[in-house]
Write a protein that binds this DNA or RNA. Structure first.
Ligand code: MN
Ligand code: MN
Ligand code: ZN
Ligand code: ZN
Lengths: 136, 136
DNA sequence: ATAATCTTTGCAATTGAGTTGCACTATAAA
DNA sequence: TTTATAGTGCAACTCAATTGCAAAGATTAT
């Protein structure tokens, strides 16, 4: 697991108690986390503080957000060299059975040929179906 | 433009006044519509009735929903032979400037090689950037 | 045709994720 | 130390989405 202080330093975000707790939590997860997920895990910590922490992290490319259609935005840690734009584009998988959302970092992202004059800046790619645990 | 009654018949959804109005409206659009968009266009019609109409349409594969990260679910008419599962998978484009969301029906959907034992059922693919009108 | 049943609609109220205002605290600069 | 800046906790608010319920409409049985 990557070092929290190191990441904050690289991404130029000041180290505070809450930021350390939230980032450490996110790094431990095997699935993308909603604000509520984090709130439930870090019961001592205030929701709006977590919210603002996530906002700061997204703005500074420490994490990225995923709209998986569950009604709650999910968050996952970015690759260390990610600028959340054309680098580190990747698919996500939402399991219709266990409701977990994963980053599919290992699946190569295919370049999409857009219509004339369209310019890609970011993407929110969510494949839905059954994950390896649920597809039995 | 396709015929409203025809579509409803094919998809086995009873024809009612509101359903006709909503579907006719959706067929006319060049961008995906939010509940609020529709509400604003069809001022006579009650929001919850439109909401339930959209729900019925999604359940019966007349339309599909798109999570584009704007905070409002968008809806667009399906291809007539769509089952909203592995057929008619397509990308969407969200313009960061004019905030319109389009179906990119003409862009071929590339088959994604998922990890072992993952099974795709549907997808919510949203590419974000500048549309041809705004990229100047 | 009439009554019974099921479906759809309109309105008001509720839910819940997300967001903000504000006072207080902690940290950094002067 | 004083002053300015940034971060936090709490409560309140926003707003898209959803629901309960009764009235209206459509369908089926008698
Ligand atoms: Mn991801
Ligand atoms: Mn579409
Ligand atoms: Zn699963
Ligand atoms: Zn545009």
């Amino acid at each position: 697991m990557q070092n929290v202080d190191e990441i904050l330093k690289i991404k130029n975000v000041k180290n505070t108690a809450i930021r350390t707790i939230v980032l450490r939590h996110l790094l431990k997860q095997d699935k993308a986390q909603s604000l509520k997920d984090i709130e439930n895990s870090l019961i001592e910590t205030d929701r709006s503080s977590i919210f603002r922490t996530l906002k700061t992290f997204v703005e500074n490319k420490i994490i990225h957000s995923i709209e998986d259609g569950s009604g709650m935005t999910k968050y996952a840690v970015c690759a260390i060299d990610c600028n959340c734009e054309l680098k580190d584009l990747h698919y996500h998988f939402y399991c219709n059975n266990c409701n977990k959302t994963f980053c599919l970092h290992e699946v190569p992202f295919k370049k999409i040929k857009l219509p004339e004059n369209f310019k890609i800046q970011e993407a929110n790619m969510v494949i839905k179906g059954l994950c390896n645990n649920c597809n039995k």
